[in-house]
Simulated scan of single mutants.
Amino acid sequence: MKYSLILAFLFVSFFISAQNNNNNLLQVTRYKLHPTELNIQNDVETEKINLKIYYLKDGDITADYRYFKPKKNEILFFFGNDIKTNTTQMYFKADDSLMHIYKKKDFNKLMKVVEILEYNVFSQEANFSSIDAYTALAQL
């Protein structure tokens, strides 16, 4: 009886600690933006652009980057802090309807996306670098 109580206690404590560890959970946030907010109103024929952010506070985001595909009029941003290598990872993907806009590497259009991430999404995140985000977006 003692052993079963000890095992039950260990199982419950493990379950509770796993539930309280939110650092390695993938957080997904979506923003619906008007093309004027991204300075691309002359380049697209749509009313809304979806900016979807995948954030992994403690872990490698590369597998998620490879798995998720953008939908029509959607920009995906992947941001992870890999504790093992002590690095941050940033990747972008864009739908074909938006890809041609960002392939031109227009500084003002690239910076609009980075500014939204820097000031609206990751303003409190110390590891977020607007320079790294710009570089990742320019590599689309």
Rank of each mutant, 00 (worst) to 15 (best):
D82L: 00
M99A: 13
Y3N: 15
Y3E: 15
L10F: 09
Y65E: 07
Q89M: 04
N127L: 10
T135D: 10
Q124H: 14
D58E: 15
L117E: 01
L51D: 08
A133F: 05
N23S: 06
K2N: 14
K84Q: 12
R30I: 06
F107N: 11
K93P: 03
F14R: 06
N120V: 04
I101N: 05
I40A: 01
K84W: 01
G80R: 05
N42W: 00
F79R: 07
K48W: 14
F122E: 05
L5F: 10
S17F: 02
L51M: 11
S13W: 03
K105I: 07
L25D: 13
F15R: 00
S13C: 14
T29D: 12
F14D: 03
V114D: 00
K69N: 11
N127K: 11
K84L: 05
L76I: 00
N73K: 05
K52L: 06
N108F: 14
P35E: 04
A126F: 11
K71H: 12
L137C: 15
G80V: 09
D132S: 12
D58I: 14
D96Q: 10
T29K: 14
N108L: 13
N22E: 12
M99T: 13
L56G: 04
L25W: 09
K104W: 09
Q27M: 13
D43F: 12
N127C: 10
K48E: 12
Y67F: 12
I75V: 01
F15I: 06
A136S: 09
Y102N: 01
V113E: 01
L51Q: 05
L25R: 06
V28M: 04
E47M: 14
A18P: 03
A18H: 13
L38T: 03
M90A: 13
S4D: 11
I131M: 08
V12N: 02
A18E: 14
F107K: 13
F92A: 06
T135G: 08
D132V: 05
L26E: 07
K69A: 06
D106S: 02
L117A: 02
V44A: 04
T85N: 04
Q139H: 11
K52P: 10
K2I: 12
L5P: 00
K57C: 13
E125D: 13
D60Y: 03
K72L: 15
I101F: 12
Y31A: 01
I40F: 01
I116E: 08
F122Q: 00
I16H: 01
K105R: 07
Q139T: 15
D95N: 12
F68L: 08
N120Y: 13
L33E: 04
N42S: 03
F78L: 03
H100A: 11
S130F: 10
F68D: 09
S97Y: 07
F78I: 03
N23Y: 08
V121D: 09
E74L: 07
H100R: 08
L98E: 09
D60S: 05
A126T: 13
I53T: 08
D82C: 02
Y55P: 03
K32Y: 15
N120H: 14
N39A: 12
Y65P: 09
K72P: 11
N86K: 14
F128C: 00
V114H: 02
